[in-house]
């Protein structure tokens, strides 16, 4: 229709991997497109970079000059990290860091294991009430956890487990279950029934089928949900705040950091180092397992 197309006789060359975006971009006159991409990338990186640089600057320098002056006058120190981790004279973030680890690992394992066997039942066993139960669990994804917090807290107090890790483990497990079951169920339905049939004919029971046939195939799905849940729990503030109390007995590092911002909002040497102590774990996980994380994001993200 339009006649402005430049003559392109050599069409066959590299047409295979041309996408709409590429065509759009090419015609957007490349320098501008590159510039826009660079501007966005810089805008998205500078905030984190600024705080990272600050976390290694001496306390006095942070408080009197901007972090960008670091490049004309570079002085590095690890004092901020020592101060923020130390319990005696600093913010004592070390024990909260341990709490976060203690909270997160079971909070990932419990829903993952329970959801796997539940999803197996939904996907591969016929039983009365299967559809309605699955629908209910699917619908439970919409429940915002705010709705459950106070009655749940009362239940924990009545059961005598208030202020123990059990409250946080169970809460995260409960909140993670509906999404986990939904994701794993979808994934299991995609496994060809003939594989399971073959195993069954060989006389394998549910447990054997589960471990020998399904588990190896499920690994990507388990990894996807596992990372999803890991980041969710590690980065959570609300659940930790409600069930974790104020002290360093069970509260996670996010709670300690949030409190630190409230009480010592200008202690940037502590805040910057503290933020990076908490950030380093999820970012490492993310960098190494990015592929699975992305898959988890693409698979479902309506979690309440």
């Amino acid at each position: 229709m339009t006649t402005t197309t430049p003559a392109t006789p050599s069409v066959p060359i590299a047409t295979k991997d041309i996408s709409t975006a590429e065509v759009a971009k090419r015609k957007l006159s490349s320098p501008w497109a590159s510039l826009a991409a660079i501007v966005i990338a810089v805008l998205w990186t500078v905030p984190t970079f600024g705080l990272l640089v600050s976390s290694f600057r001496p306390e006095r320098a942070i408080k009197t000059t901007g972090w960008w002056t670091f490049f004309s006058n570079p002085t590095l120190t690890l004092d901020n990290y020592k101060a923020v981790l130390d319990a005696e004279e600093g913010a004592g973030l070390g024990s909260y860091f341990i709490n976060s680890i203690v909270i997160t690992i079971p909070s990932v394992i419990i829903p993952l294991a329970l959801a796997t066997i539940a999803a197996y039942a939904f996907a591969w066993i016929k039983f009365p009430g299967r559809n309605i139960l699955f629908l209910i669990i699917f619908a439970l994804q919409v429940v915002p956890l705010q709705v459950t917090l106070i009655p749940l807290l009362t239940l924990y107090v009545d059961a005598g487990v208030a202020n123990t890790f059990w409250t946080i483990w169970l809460s995260h497990a409960i909140f993670g279950l509906p999404l986990a079951i939904y994701l794993l169920h979808n994934f299991m339905r995609d496994i060809p029934a003939s594989l399971l049939e073959a195993a069954r004919v060989d006389g394998a029971g549910h447990v054997a089928i589960f471990f020998r046939v399904l588990l190896p195939l499920l690994r990507p799905a388990l990894a996807a949900f596992g990372i999803f849940q890991f980041l969710w729990v590690w980065n959570d503030l609300l659940v930790g705040l409600v069930f974790g109390g104020g002290g360093d007995t069970i509260a996670p590092i996010t709670v300690a950091l949030a409190n630190l911002t409230g009480t010592r909002g200008t202690a940037w040497h502590l805040l910057s180092a503290g933020a990076f102590v908490s950030i380093v774990v999820p970012v490492t996980i993310f960098l190494f397992l990015q592929r699975y994380f992305v898959r988890g994001l693409l698979a479902g993200s309506v979690k309440g």
Partner: peptide, 19 residues
Amino acid sequence: LIFLPMAISFVGASIIWKF
């Protein structure tokens, strides 16, 4: 680069931007 903030907690992001 753009995706990395997704891995940072909201609390961490808040401190980054408060600065």
